[in-house]
Simulated scan of single mutants.
Amino acid sequence: MGSFSIWHWLIVLVIVLVVFGTRKLRNIGSDLGGAVKSFKDAVKEEEKPTPKVEAPASGQTIEGEVKEKSKSQ
């Protein structure tokens, strides 16, 4: 009674196919595969060293918010 036989798994598979249908199971499988592929791509992208860009020494950064835009003449 501790483990399931092959017949138990076949009955479970038939019940799942009847409940969900083959098309929905295929869509779930392709969605899961796409998610795994995206995750792998994101991990590979994160491992790449990013080039460091240095700001010019004479430049100055001003933080602010534009409230009105006007055209200069």
Rank of each mutant, 00 (worst) to 15 (best):
A35V: 00
A42F: 01
R26D: 01
A42D: 03
L10S: 12
F20N: 03
N27F: 02
F39L: 11
K67Y: 12
K24F: 06
K71W: 11
V53L: 11
Q60E: 14
T50W: 04
N27V: 01
A35S: 03
T22I: 14
K37Q: 02
V12P: 00
G33W: 03
V53D: 04
T22P: 07
I28H: 04
L17S: 10
L10P: 03
K44F: 05
S30P: 03
L25E: 04
P56F: 01
G59I: 11
A57Q: 07
H8Y: 06
H8Q: 14
W9V: 14
A57V: 09
K24V: 08
E46C: 10
D41N: 04
I28Q: 01
V16F: 05
G59K: 13
D41M: 05
V16S: 02
V66K: 06
L17M: 12
V36Q: 08
I28G: 01
Q60S: 12
W9F: 15
P49C: 05
G59Q: 15
K24N: 06
G59N: 14
V12C: 07
I15F: 10
D31P: 05
L25Y: 04
E65S: 14
V12K: 12
V12M: 15
G21Q: 10
A55P: 03
T22R: 14
K52W: 02
K48T: 00
V66Q: 00
T50I: 08
R23L: 07
L32V: 05
I62Q: 13
E45Y: 08
V36C: 09
K67N: 09
V43T: 06
K69E: 07
K71Y: 09
D31M: 04
E68D: 13
D31S: 00
D31H: 01
L17C: 13
I15H: 05
R26T: 03
I62F: 14
S70E: 15
K44I: 05
K37W: 00
K71M: 12
A35N: 01
I28M: 05
V66D: 07
S58I: 02
A35L: 01
S58H: 09
V14C: 09
V43L: 08
I15P: 05
E46I: 10
V36D: 02
T22C: 05
G64W: 08
H8C: 06
K71F: 09
V19N: 07
G21N: 06
D31T: 04
I11T: 14
K40R: 07
V14M: 11
P51Y: 04
L17R: 12
L32I: 03
G34H: 08
A35Q: 01
P49G: 07
V19K: 11
G34F: 01
E68G: 09
G21A: 11
P51V: 11
S70W: 13
T50M: 11
G34W: 08
A42S: 10
K67H: 10
T61C: 10
Q60M: 12
I11D: 10
K69A: 07
G29E: 00
K71I: 14
P56R: 07
V16Y: 05
D41S: 06
E65D: 11
E54S: 10
K24W: 00
E45A: 15
G21T: 09
V19A: 09
E46M: 15
T50A: 13
Q60T: 13
S30C: 03
P49Y: 05
V12A: 15
L25D: 02
K71D: 11
D31Q: 00
T61H: 06
S70H: 11
L32E: 02
S70G: 10
N27W: 02
V36E: 06
W9N: 12
A35I: 04
V53F: 09
G33H: 01
L25C: 00
